[in-house]
Amino acid sequence: MTDWLMQNGTRLLEKIFEHVYMFAIALIVGILIAVPLGIFISRYRKTSQAIISVTSVLQTFPSLAVLAIMVPILGIGKIPAIVALSLYSLLPILRNTYLGIVNMSPGIVDVAKGQGLSSAQVLRGVILPLAAPVIMSGIRVSGVYLIAWTTLAAYIGAGGLGDFIYTGLQNYDINYILGGTIPVSLMAILFDLLFGKIEKKVTPKTHR
């Protein structure tokens, strides 16, 4: 293992960088789509169930197939990989955003409106801060999964730590497999810890 590290150290760093890069963009794109969508559908409770069902079915599509289908449409490399990954990140964030808003006691919003706040102000000042912990936990779950899923990007030439894992699998070399897996797991655990802290930070004092 140490020999392997000596030989592949710089490449390992490169792959870690690629991995983080794809993961971070995919997650940010996922958040930018899922949070507004979650806020939006929380106003239309009937259609919301349908939209959440659609995204959960999306989630069950095997990643292998989704990536293969992306090739003729979006080509190979990082972009189709990021698109596929952000699709996968949607569900937990969307569901939690929706639940966070819907489960808030309706009285709070009424009180805020009664005090003359506009809907935008209510959203920014009341709804989002109160739903933040639930949304954050959605992002946390999504992120942990996404770090692992980013390995599949190697399948369509996008690089990342998946390259090492594939090479290890194909060439039956445990050094490569572990060299890819251990950093991925460590990253996921770190992300989980970090976001656990953030989740606590954004929880309003009264909720603690």
Partner: peptide
């Protein structure tokens, strides 16, 4: 250089991705 699944390279060439 793109390291990828061997089954996908032909399609990728045909669709001008490689």
């Amino acid at each position: 250089l793109f390291s990828m699944d061997i089954g996908l390279v032909y399609e990728a060439i045909a669709s001008d991705r490689l």
